[in-house]
């Protein structure tokens, strides 16, 4: 099995390489470049042209690509043109935000989804089950964005005021608060986006869990246990629940990938300064060094997530083995 994992990792490299080439070509062909935003009647064209030359923007794309890859191999991920900082510094500022939001959101996802899914499965066919399914469908039907907007208008200071308007932390607290206070404040800022982000993931898990529970309920070993006289609660807890949770655990990899990927929309609505808004900004400002690295990063994360799912699945379910 370790051989397979290693093989998967090795295959990852050419895959990432391919993606990076595609992204790079895409970026180079976009109308406008990093200096477009500086158009200003006070800036003569000759200066802008000179700056282009200096920044190497006039080189053919394969040349720039080679420079970029070469740089990456020695740890130099390029400089952001908009932030005038090394790309790693720029991303470093934001990565904690996205990461913490993702983790928080995953936590909430499972917190909400597992009880709901189990309940729906256990009481399948009843009104409770129908209610949960309907909730799931409605949540599925509403585009994430609309959900986010609704949340803002309900819970932010514009509505009930339970949560702040946006941002990741309050500067005042950051300046004057204890680390614990800062942590709480950050949590406070992240709750609304995390809930919005998690709502869609919960649906897949609820359905999966529900289906699994229903399956197990009708299975042979459960019937056997019942006929032996084992109390319902034990049957449920020991047999059904544990076995149902297994595929859910394997889903975590995909959930990770989805959460980080889907964050772009959410971050935009909540003005949350994470990698998603960084990506949007860098596309708008044609700051390609940053955009390329972010895309690579997410691709890597997605691949990792899928791999993680497969590995967990193999570990917990002996029936499946990676070929």
């Amino acid at each position: 099995m370790y051989k397979t994992i290693l093989r998967r990792f090795l295959v990852l490299i050419p895959q990432l390489f391919l993606i990076s080439v595609v992204m790079f070509v895409l970026a180079v062909n976009m109308p406008g470049d990093a200096l477009s935003g500086m158009l200003d009647p006070n800036l003569p064209l000759a200066t802008i042209e000179q700056m282009r030359e200096d920044m190497g923007l006039n080189l053919p794309w394969y040349q720039r690509y080679i420079n970029w890859v070469g740089g990456m191999l020695v740890g130099d991920f390029g400089r952001s043109t908009a932030h005038m900082q090394p790309v790693l510094d720029v991303i470093g500022e934001r990565i904690w935000n996205t990461f913490s939001l993702g983790v928080y959101s995953l936590f909430l996802t499972y917190l909400i989804a597992i009880p709901l899914g189990v309940l729906a499965g256990k009481h399948s066919g009843t009104a409770l089950d129908k209610a949960i399914i309907t909730y799931a469908f409605v949540a599925l039907a509403m585009p994430t964005l609309v959900l986010g907007i609704v949340m803002i208008f309900l819970f932010s200071p514009i509505g009930l005021g339970w949560f702040p308007l946006g941002g990741s932390v309050s500067a005042v607290v950051l300046s004057t608060g204890t680390p614990f206070e800062i942590f709480l404040n950050q949590l406070h800022h992240r709750t609304l986006p995390a809930i919005s982000l998690s709502l869609v993931s919960t649906i897949t898990i609820i359905f999966m869990l529900r289906a699994n529970v229903i399956d197990r309920k009708a299975s042979d070993y459960v019937t056997l246990a019942r006929s032996k006289g084992v109390p319902s609660r034990t049957i449920f807890g020991k047999h059904i629940l544990r076995n149902s949770l297994v595929p859910v655990a394997s889903h975590i990899g995909l959930a990770i990938a989805f959460t980080f990927g889907g964050a772009v929309f959410i971050e935009m609505i909540f003005s949350y300064p994470g990698m998603g808004t960084l990506f949007l900004d860098s596309i708008n400002r044609r700051d390609f060094p940053v955009a390329n690295v972010i895309v690579m990063f997410f691709a890597f994360l997605t691949a990792l997530g899928v791999l993680l799912s497969d590995i967990i699945l193999t570990i917990v379910d002996p029936r499946i083995r990676i070929r």
Binding site: D89, R94, G167, S168, V169, S170, A171, L174, S175, P273
Partner: peptide, 29 residues
């Protein structure tokens, strides 16, 4: 030059307001 903290959140000016804390990209106290 723009890499260093002294050109960023540790910047020094002579105006009425001194930069105290910066939350990158969002707010300045």
């Amino acid at each position: 030059l723009a890499d260093h903290a002294r050109a960023r959140h540790e910047a020094v000016g002579f105006g009425p307001w001194i930069i105290d804390t910066v939350v990158p990209g969002e707010s300045v106290l």
